[in-house]
Write a protein that binds this DNA or RNA. Structure first.
Length: 578
RNA sequence: GGCGGCGUAGCUCAGUUGGUGAGAGCGCUCGGCUCAUAAUCGAGAGGUCGUCGGUUCGAGUCCGACCGCCGCUACCA
């Protein structure tokens, strides 16, 4: 038994997340967490909403709400949606929690004490009409390079030229359209990443097991030279800078990207303070995060989209390393490419794509979990299409997994009643079956150990298919007419395999797995672990005469009418002009 | 502009450090079965691995150029 800390990139508070966000971090983190728990390990799965920054303030403004209330409401929405998707985090916290405030202030103080911060004065665009400083991209105007009249202050989307807000001709606020803009000086705290670059590179060098994508992104930033980074902002919503520590930056807040990853710590502290780690919250927290207090035995795995990699390989480690304290750094980092909608971007503004709330309106979480993980964008961007979704559901869940369980259940009940059949002892065909099952199971757990989700889904599908292959080979429907004892043996083994499926499938389709496991009220499957021992455990379970209550259909088939209607509702390939 | 990634069967994608006849799932064709949500099982067809050139005894796998798509470029998060 090992100890595993798992975090997924924090979903931003600004609205319901789409399926791309889900499959890029939260869902694979959950599959992995469930797998490790099922394999008998101690797991702490942490997530939280990322609540600070300009978009949160603007979102609250748009909904005519106090920003704290706005965040509280959206946090609850995201929590509820996550839970309905079966996300089994041990704690779903908030970066706006008191715990995160304290930790952020603490780390900033430590960085200063270690000499890794510096105050610098920068020029910022201030909008008088809006009464606030504007981030570069919230200033729009005419591009001096190509004349595009809606260029953003950081880059012109038309010609691609990088810009400074002051380069723009006829600049105006993206919020109000006001042209009453001023350039004002503002003092900000900078994190001296340049001074930490060598330590960071050495640390990245040691992570030889990281995927190519991850390492190449980290090295790219290191090779170009890590720049010092402003870690405060002129906003009202955020974690306030402690004026005792940084008097020059009093009245400002920490940059959202500084406090967001600290949210992993903050959320863990929330979990500990809630008493979920034992009576001593301090110790409960420390044994997961402080290497001097037991966290050196923890394997820490992070999940995120590829856009987040620099922050997790460089910025956040810089914060932790620079503190001079013994914080646990990430061991394994799994990053994902983008899930696209028919090859195009998921887009809120254009109303294209499927969001978590939409998805659950149509079908339970298991359906989406399976499709998304079996087609996860691991090595490249991957397309969502309704056709593929329909195939994954109808072919894999209904046709292979559900059908094996159902055809087995039907025959058992018809010929032997709602009990595990007695009959002949196992023969050579059964030895062969369980040998094949063992191989498939090994493929499956190997892939999960390596964080290869598409491969593990394919292995699980193959494991399900072994059930149908076995039935086709042994033909209990034919055997039962001449040899009821032989048929009983076949169906008994089929039931045991179904029980194995219930345990093995849990990381991907937890709800269906639970229903299936409940069909065997006398089985000791709660003690089974998802590893190589599962084969013998399953084969040795279910004594003749044990109760069996048919679970009914585990999954419902999707009609072509359903799929066509959904494609129509959400926009399909035809709308993309490709 | 700079950097990075991708381009492999109709579709979505795998292909460790270059090496026996290039793979999976779906779709398609044919066959078996009829217990099962017209589900399932088996067999088969289908690809000059984006283009051109190079290195090598040998390249989808390495190098160069080109074409196409995508992403990043540090104040969106």
């Amino acid at each position: 038994m090992a100890r595993h800390l798992i975090t997924s990139a924090l979903p931003y508070i600004n609205g319901v997340k789409h399926l791309g966000n889900l499959v890029g971090s939260m869902l694979p983190a959950d599959v992995y967490a469930r797998y490790l728990r099922s394999a008998g390990h101690e797991v702490l799965a942490i997530c939280a909403t990322d609540e600070h920054g300009t978009p949160a303030e603007l979102g609250a403004l748009a909904e005519d709400m106090d920003v704290a209330e706005y965040c509280a409401r959206h946090h609850e929405t995201q929590r509820e949606l996550g839970e309905r998707f079966g996300l089994s985090w041990d704690w779903f916290g908030r970066t706006s929690s008191p715990q995160n405030h304290e930790l952020t202030a603490h780390l900033a103080r430590r960085l200063k004490a270690e000499g890794y911060t510096e105050t610098r004065t920068t020029s910022q665009v201030y909008s008088v009409a809006d009464g606030r400083f504007l981030p570069d991209r919230y200033v729009i105007g005419t591009c001096p390079n190509c004349g595009y009249d809606r260029a953003r202050g950081d880059q012109c989307e038309n010609c691609g030229k990088q810009l400074d807000p002051t380069d723009l001709l006829e600049p105006r606020s993206a919020l109000s359209g006001s042209t009453e803009l001023e350039v004002r000086d503002s003092a900000h705290v900078f994190l001296l990443q340049s001074k930490l670059a060598d330590r960071l590179r050495k640390w990245v060098d040691s992570k030889s097991d990281w995927p190519n994508l991850t390492r190449s992104i980290a090295y790219k930033w290191l090779d170009e030279g890590l720049e010092d980074r402003g870690i405060t902002r002129d906003l009202s919503w955020g974690i306030p800078v402690d004026p005792d520590d940084f008097p020059e930056a009093a009245g400002k807040v920490w940059y959202v990207w500084f406090d967001a990853p600290i949210g992993y710590l903050g959320a863990t502290r929330e979990w500990a303070d809630a008493g979920l780690g034992g009576d001593d919250p301090r110790a409960a927290f420390d044994r997961w995060w402080r290497t001097g207090a037991g966290a050196d035995e923890v394997t820490y795995t992070q999940f995120m989209g590829k856009d987040n990699v620099p922050f997790h390989t460089l910025s956040f480690p810089a914060t932790l390393l620079g503190s001079g304290e013994d914080w646990l750094l990430v061991d394994r980092l799994k990053s994902f490419n983008w899930l696209t909608y028919y090859g195009g971007k998921f887009s809120t503004s254009e109303g294209r794509g499927v969001f978590m709330s939409d998805a659950l309106e149509l079908l339970p979480g298991d359906y989406w979990r399976w499709y998304l993980m079996a087609n996860a964008p691991e090595s490249d961007d991957a397309s969502f299409t309704w056709e593929l979704f329909g195939d994954a559901v109808n072919k894999d869940l209904v046709g292979t997994f559900g059908n094996f369980v159902n055809r087995t259940a039907t025959q058992v009940v018809r010929h032997f009643g709602e009990v595990v059949p007695d009959g002949d002892p196992d023969g050579a065909a059964e030895d062969l079956l369980w040998e094949r099952v063992g191989e498939r199971l090994r493929d499956y757990t190997d892939a999960l150990d390596q964080l290869q989700f598409r491969r593990s889904a394919a292995a699980l599908r193959a494991l399900w298919a072994e059930g149908n292959v076995y039935l086709e080979e042994r033909e209990p429907w034919r055997v039962v007419k001449e040899d009821p004892g032989g048929a009983a043996c076949i169906l008994r083994n089929a039931l045991r395999l179904a029980l194995l499926h219930a345990v093995a499938s849990e990381p991907f389709v937890p709800e269906a797995s639970r229903r299936l496991a409940e069909a065997f009220p006398d089985a000791a499957h709660t003690g089974f672990t998802l590893d190589a021992t599962l084969v013998d455990d399953a084969r040795g379970s279910l004594a003749p005469g044990d109760r069996f209550s048919p679970p009914g259909l585990l999954f419902t088939k999707l009609s072509s009418e359903d799929l066509a209607a959904w494609e129509d509702r959400f926009g399909g390939g035809d709308d993309l002009g490709r």
